[in-house]
Amino acid sequence: EFTQISGYVNAFGSQRGSVLTVKVENDEGWTLVEEDFDRADYGSDPEFVAEVSSYLKRNGGIKDLTKVL
């Protein structure tokens, strides 16, 4: 089950073990991109978060400006 990723309007994530599946949706709710990120592939949590965040930004993730990150 996908849940909204904090700080984004149209990005959602689903966690299974160490694998986080993220997706970005358009205004109609269609999935634009979907990608798996395995936490085990990264040396640290900040590196993992930075990679996921960068992916979302590159692929149309819209920041939720009503929330302070």
Rank of each mutant, 00 (worst) to 15 (best):
E1D: 10
E1L: 10
E1V: 11
E1H: 12
E1R: 12
E1M: 11
F2Q: 05
F2D: 04
F2T: 04
F2K: 06
F2P: 05
F2N: 05
T3H: 12
T3Y: 13
T3V: 12
T3Q: 10
T3F: 14
Q4P: 12
Q4T: 08
Q4N: 07
Q4W: 07
I5D: 03
I5P: 04
I5K: 05
I5V: 05
I5R: 03
I5W: 05
I5E: 04
I5T: 04
I5Q: 03
S6Y: 13
S6G: 08
S6A: 13
S6K: 11
S6C: 15
S6P: 14
G7M: 04
G7Q: 04
G7W: 05
G7Y: 05
G7L: 06
G7C: 14
Y8R: 06
Y8T: 06
Y8M: 05
Y8H: 06
Y8V: 06
Y8G: 06
V9T: 11
V9K: 11
V9R: 09
V9C: 13
V9W: 06
V9H: 08
V9A: 07
V9E: 05
N10V: 06
N10S: 03
N10M: 03
N10Q: 03
N10Y: 05
N10W: 04
N10R: 07
A11L: 02
A11M: 02
A11S: 02
A11W: 04
A11Q: 01
A11R: 00
A11P: 01
A11D: 02
A11T: 03
F12L: 04
F12H: 04
G13L: 09
G13Q: 13
G13H: 08
G13V: 12
G13W: 15
G13N: 02
G13E: 07
S14I: 13
S14L: 13
S14W: 14
S14H: 09
S14Y: 13
S14E: 05
S14K: 14
S14M: 14
S14C: 15
Q15W: 15
Q15L: 14
Q15I: 13
Q15F: 15
Q15A: 08
R16D: 04
R16P: 01
R16A: 07
R16Y: 06
R16I: 07
R16F: 07
R16T: 08
R16V: 08
R16Q: 07
R16S: 07
G17Q: 02
G17W: 04
G17L: 04
G17A: 02
G17M: 02
G17R: 02
S18A: 04
S18W: 05
S18P: 03
S18D: 04
S18F: 05
V19A: 01
V19T: 05
V19G: 01
V19R: 05
V19Q: 03
L20Q: 00
L20C: 15
L20Y: 08
L20W: 07
L20S: 01
L20A: 00
T21R: 14
T21K: 09
T21E: 01
T21S: 08
T21Q: 03
V22Y: 01
V22A: 00
V22N: 00
V22F: 02
V22C: 04
V22H: 00
V22P: 00
V22R: 00
V22K: 00
V22L: 04
K23P: 00
K23M: 07
K23V: 08
K23E: 01
K23Y: 08
K23F: 07
K23N: 01
V24W: 03
V24E: 01
V24G: 00
V24Y: 02
V24D: 00
V24K: 00
E25L: 15
E25D: 05
E25Y: 15
E25P: 00
E25H: 10
E25S: 12
E25A: 11
E25K: 15
E25R: 13
N26L: 08
N26C: 09
N26G: 07
N26I: 06
N26K: 04
D27P: 11
D27Q: 11
D27V: 10
D27W: 09
D27Y: 10
D27S: 12
D27K: 11
D27C: 15
E28C: 15
E28V: 10
E28G: 08
E28Y: 12
E28K: 11
E28N: 11
E28R: 10
E28T: 08
G29W: 04
G29P: 03
G29E: 02
G29D: 03
G29K: 04
W30K: 12
W30L: 13
W30Q: 14
W30Y: 14
W30I: 15
W30P: 03
W30H: 13
W30A: 13
T31Q: 05
T31W: 06
T31F: 06
T31I: 11
L32V: 12
L32G: 03
L32K: 05
L32N: 04
L32D: 03
L32P: 03
L32A: 07
L32T: 08
V33T: 08
V33R: 07
V33P: 02
E34C: 15
E34I: 14
E34Y: 10
E34F: 09
E34K: 11
E34S: 11
E34R: 10
E35Y: 13
E35Q: 14
E35D: 07
E35I: 12
E35K: 15
E35V: 13
D36M: 13
D36R: 13
D36N: 12
D36G: 06
F37M: 01
F37W: 01
F37E: 00
F37I: 01
F37G: 01
F37D: 00
F37C: 02
D38M: 02
D38F: 03
D38S: 03
R39V: 02
R39N: 01
R39A: 03
R39T: 02
R39Y: 06
A40Y: 07
A40S: 10
A40H: 08
A40G: 07
A40P: 01
A40Q: 09
A40D: 09
D41G: 06
D41A: 09
D41R: 09
D41W: 08
D41E: 07
D41N: 12
Y42N: 01
Y42H: 02
Y42I: 01
Y42E: 00
Y42K: 00
Y42A: 00
Y42S: 01
Y42L: 01
G43Q: 11
G43I: 09
G43C: 13
G43P: 10
G43M: 11
S44K: 01
S44E: 03
S44D: 05
S44I: 02
S44P: 01
S44Y: 02
D45K: 04
D45W: 15
D45S: 06
D45P: 02
D45H: 08
D45Y: 14
D45E: 10
P46I: 14
P46C: 15
P46K: 15
P46D: 15
P46M: 15
P46L: 15
E47M: 05
E47V: 05
E47D: 08
E47S: 04
F48G: 00
F48M: 05
F48D: 01
F48Y: 06
V49D: 12
V49M: 14
V49G: 06
V49W: 15
V49K: 08
A50D: 09
A50P: 00
A50K: 10
A50N: 10
A50V: 06
A50S: 09
A50F: 09
A50I: 07
A50R: 09
E51P: 00
E51I: 14
E51S: 12
E51Y: 10
E51L: 07
E51F: 10
E51R: 09
E51C: 13
V52S: 00
V52L: 10
V52D: 04
V52M: 03
V52P: 01
V52A: 01
V52I: 13
S53D: 15
S53I: 14
S53R: 14
S53P: 02
S53A: 13
S53C: 15
S53E: 15
S54T: 08
S54V: 06
S54F: 08
S54N: 14
Y55D: 05
Y55A: 05
L56T: 00
L56E: 02
L56R: 00
L56D: 02
L56P: 06
L56N: 00
K57Y: 10
K57V: 10
K57H: 12
K57A: 14
K57F: 10
R58K: 13
R58I: 09
R58Y: 08
R58V: 08
R58W: 07
R58M: 12
N59D: 01
N59L: 08
N59P: 00
N59W: 13
G60W: 08
G60H: 05
G60M: 05
G60L: 04
G61I: 06
G61F: 05
G61V: 12
G61Y: 05
G61K: 02
G61Q: 03
G61W: 05
I62N: 03
I62A: 04
I62T: 05
I62D: 02
I62F: 07
I62R: 09
K63V: 14
K63M: 14
K63L: 14
K63G: 07
K63A: 11
K63R: 12
K63W: 12
K63T: 10
D64T: 10
D64P: 04
D64N: 07
D64K: 10
D64A: 10
D64H: 08
L65C: 15
L65W: 12
L65I: 11
L65R: 08
L65M: 10
L65N: 11
L65A: 09
T66Q: 10
T66V: 08
T66R: 09
T66M: 09
T66S: 11
T66I: 08
T66H: 10
T66W: 11
T66L: 12
T66P: 07
K67V: 12
K67G: 13
K67N: 11
K67H: 12
K67P: 13
K67Q: 13
K67C: 15
K67D: 13
K67T: 11
V68T: 11
V68F: 11
V68S: 13
V68Y: 10
V68D: 14
V68W: 12
V68R: 11
V68G: 13
V68P: 11
V68I: 11
V68N: 12
V68Q: 11
L69Q: 14
L69G: 13
L69I: 14
L69T: 13
L69W: 06
L69Y: 08
